[in-house]
């Protein structure tokens, strides 16, 4: 069997339409909204602020703390128990590790930077959308960063290596989903997960697809960050 055509008519190496905005949550120190296809993520950054509980404080450098949450109504509409679960805890952790290499918190001993990512609408690729939004929100919050982080998923459905999976592709039988996060400049990989089985050759192809897409995502992020200061907001 071969996968002939994607359900939304995209090319196999094409991203879904992307939109982004920075400064969407006025009370947060930094915030951003990132939309890719039907997946939408809001990120809010608070801090550096005092770390509680105190035993989590690190006297050598500041901590980064991520919180990922899919809203109960965000998926297909079936009832989901609100609040954190095993999956969201894991994604919070990998998001923190994806962002960790770019942020420099050495000036903020004992403090914490909190990143909250909320997803009001989801159609696969939520952790990638979350990382893209979080990276913009961190920049907006004035956190010292050496680069931006961009993330996208790649994978394989039947015989085709594809970019930016939708939910029907993600959940396809024998489908492979590989979320990848990269630093915008150096293309160093800061997140690489895999769900499914894939050969080494195909994996490298998938990573190459993601590498090309990262530039496109990064441009959207940069434009959104700069636009925040173009007009006086009210």
């Amino acid at each position: 069997m071969t996968y002939e055509k994607r359900s939304d008519g995209r090319r196999f190496d094409e991203l879904r339409p992307i939109a982004a905005k920075v400064g969407v949550i006025p009370r947060a120190v930094g915030s951003a909204w990132f939309k890719i296809g039907k997946t939408e993520a809001y990120a809010a950054v608070y801090g550096p602020r005092e770390m509680y509980p105190k035993f989590l404080q690190d006297p050598l450098k500041g901590c980064l703390r991520c919180h990922y949450n899919m809203m109960p109504f965000s998926g297909s509409g079936e009832r989901v128990r609100p609040g954190s679960n095993r999956r969201s805890k894991e994604i919070s952790l990998v998001m923190e590790r994806a962002l960790r290499p770019v942020v420099d918190l050495s000036q903020f001993p004992n403090a914490v930077v909190d990143v909250f990512v909320e997803l009001p609408q989801t159609d696969a690729g939520t952790r990638c959308a979350g990382i893209c939004a979080a990276s913009m929100a961190l920049a907006d919050a004035g956190i010292p960063m050496r680069d931006l982080v961009c993330a996208v998923s790649a994978g394989k459905v039947e015989d085709k290596i594809i970019l930016d999976l939708m939910y029907d592709e993600d959940s396809a039988e024998e489908g492979v989903d590989i979320p990848i996060a990269m630093l915008a400049n150096s293309k160093e990989i800061s997140l690489l997960q895999m769900d499914g089985m894939i050969t080494k050759k195909d994996l490298m192809k998938a990573i190459d697809l993601a590498k090309k897409a990262v530039d496109e995502i990064c441009d959207v992020q940069k434009t959104a960050l700069k636009e925040r200061f173009n007009v006086a907001e009210h």
Partner: peptide
Amino acid sequence: RLGLVVIEGKVLKLVPLSGV
């Protein structure tokens, strides 16, 4: 970080626009 570039001769620096 996010900021405004200031070019002073050969020296490049940023003036921060946001942050606590």
